[in-house]
Design a protein around this nucleic acid. Structure first.
Length: 477
RNA sequence: CGGGGUGUAGCGCAGUUGGUAGCGCACCGCGUUUGGGACGCGGUGGUCGGCGGUUCGAGUCCGCCCACCCCGACCA
């Protein structure tokens, strides 16, 4: 294959990230600037993310639907903050079928406006509420600087859009979905995110309140990994989403929207990857275990392959790949599958055939340490237990890394220092001025006001005024 | 949008004062190999990013354009 070694994370973190994606065949650069091709291995990972999220959406009462890719320009202009937030990054279609269009069409950057328009049409009565719809799709935002998965012109995501009769219900929904994202991140992806509220400057354009799950990457930078917005009545008023309540009075709805994108794949890569390559959480990995047969010649092959097949059948409940390539050596395959992040490797050679064993090699523990013999009997149970253990270990390790890089600054000088290589959890007065100063001086932004607050009060880390909440400051992607 | 860089085989690159387009990897064939990134031999593969100019002759010199990557400001 190409160059053998990946750059290490210490040498060049972003180069490590890019090359890892290309070499593991998660994605490739498309012929269009800023766009990516999600390759089958990467898409398969996304499908697993979709499945597990979609199940959670259904369990919380949502259904899927599909809205158009094109949105009339005038729709976006109806909500002031929204259009201000998004207009710099819109792709606009002005010609269709060779004719100049009467009204330009925006390629959706997000679908609040078109979905809001439809909700206005559909919702008449309190009996129609709540409306709980999710959409899986792609959106386009014309970003200046792009990076595979983290920020591409086109990306894939889901966007949930709901409408409610009361402010309380909308807030409850917003928080519920934040909880769904948190649960997904922690329990499926082993990414120990911190759920919290966005500051006013960081919130979604047009939202009353935005919530986020923030993840710490391997270089300690923060990544917004999913968001849930309480839109208040902003969009309902802009799009006339109204209903008659039980007292026969016309009321505006309270709406929410929430989304999680292919960016999350970037979060997985940068949370778990090491200098050997990718490490995928067993619950999401397209391949949970790879079987590598080891045989020197045809005679050994004839001996080993039937056992490989038998083992494969025993493990039918798992996502298994048999690497039966003959043109590369086992050593090559070991490195190859480690690069691709397969959590468990099963080696089967002549010695194993003789002893009725296999070798189980954990991806999360490199080298001999992670290797051990296992009996071919009860292999499914052993593999299941081991995958669970790997999943748990990955979460624990990521959490330990995160916690080791979170500090509570004593003063502003301390904060400046901390955000060079970690997150600072500090009292903040809530003013945009302090936030802006800190950003200018340190490049760190407020990531979130964690739901989990220490209580009490303190003094703003910047201005010293009274503060009632703590916030995370960090440099972010 | 500002700064930097690069365009030559699928990928990474070399190509001297202008003179028949080259190397490594990958790929194909044969043979030996195979429990931590094998090796030998033989092959396939090119509008040198584009357009124009100078010249007997341009990958190389000149001009214009395009694309992509990296670093900043902005963003999921």
């Amino acid at each position: 294959m190409a160059e053998e070694k990946l750059p290490t994370r210490n040498e060049n973190y972003s180069e490590w990230y890019n090359q890892l994606i290309l070499r593991a065949e998660l994605a490739d650069y498309a012929p269009v600037r800023g766009c990516m091709v999600v390759r089958p291995y990467g898409w398969s990972l996304w499908e697993n993310i979709q499945q597990t999220l979609d199940r959670r959406f259904k369990e919380t009462g949502h259904t899927n639907a599909a809205f158009p890719l094109f949105i009339p320009m005038s729709f976006l202009e109806k909500e002031k903050e929204h259009v201000e937030g998004f207009s710099p990054e819109l792709a606009v279609v002005t010609i269709g079928g060779g004719e100049k269009l009467e009204e330009p069409l925006v390629v959706r950057p997000t679908s609040e406006t078109i979905i809001g328009t439809m909700y206005a049409k559909w919702i008449k009565s309190y009996r129609d509420l709540p409306v709980l719809i999710n959409q899986w799709g792609n959106v386009v935002r014309w970003e200046m600087r792009t990076r595979l998965f983290l920020r591409t012109l086109e990306f894939y995501w889901q966007e949930g859009h709901t409408a409610h009769a009361t402010a309380e219900e909308a807030e409850e929904e917003t928080r519920r979905m934040l909880g769904v994202y948190t649960d997904f991140a922690v329990n499926e992806a082993a990414v120990p995110v911190i759920p919290g509220r966005k500051s006013n400057t960081e919130k979604f354009a047009g939202a009353a309140r935005s919530y986020t799950i923030e993840a710490m990457m391997g270089d300690t930078r923060a990544l917004q990994a999913g968001t849930s917005h309480n839109l208040g009545q902003n969009f309902a008023k802009a799009f006339e989403i109204r209903f008659l309540d039980q007292a026969n009075e016309l009321q505006y709805c309270w709406t929410t929207s929430w989304g999680l994108s292919t960016r999350f794949i970037g979060a997985i890569i940068m949370t778990h990857g090491d200098d050997q390559g990718l490490l995928l959480p067993p619950r999401l990995a397209p391949i949970q275990a790879v079987i590598v047969p080891i045989c020197r010649n045809d005679a050994e092959r004839a001996l080993v392959m039937p056992v490989v097949e038998k083992v494969r059948q025993q493990l039918a409940a798992f996502r298994i790949k048999v690497d039966d390539r003959t043109e590369v050596t086992p050593g090559f395959k070991f490195n190859d599958w480690e690069l691709r992040g397969v959590p468990l490797r099963i080696e089967i050679g002549p010695k194993d055939v003789e002893k009725g064993s296999v070798v189980l090699a954990r991806r999360d523990i490199p080298g001999k340490e992670g290797k051990r013999f296992a009996s071919q009997d009860q292999l499914a149970a052993q593999v299941g237990a081991l995958l669970d253990e790997i999943q748990a270990n990955m979460l624990e390790r990521a959490r330990a890394f995160r916690d080791a890089h979170i500090f509570e600054p004593k003063d502003y000088a301390d904060l400046k220092d901390i955000v060079q290589n970690g997150w600072a959890l500090a009292w903040w007065c809530g003013s945009a001025e302090c936030e802006a100063h800190i950003k200018d001086e340190t490049r760190a932004t407020t990531r979130c006001i964690p739901l989990d607050q220490p209580g009490g009060s303190g003094r703003c880390i910047y201005c010293g005024e009274p503060a009632s909440e703590k916030v995370y400051f960090a440099r972010a992607y």
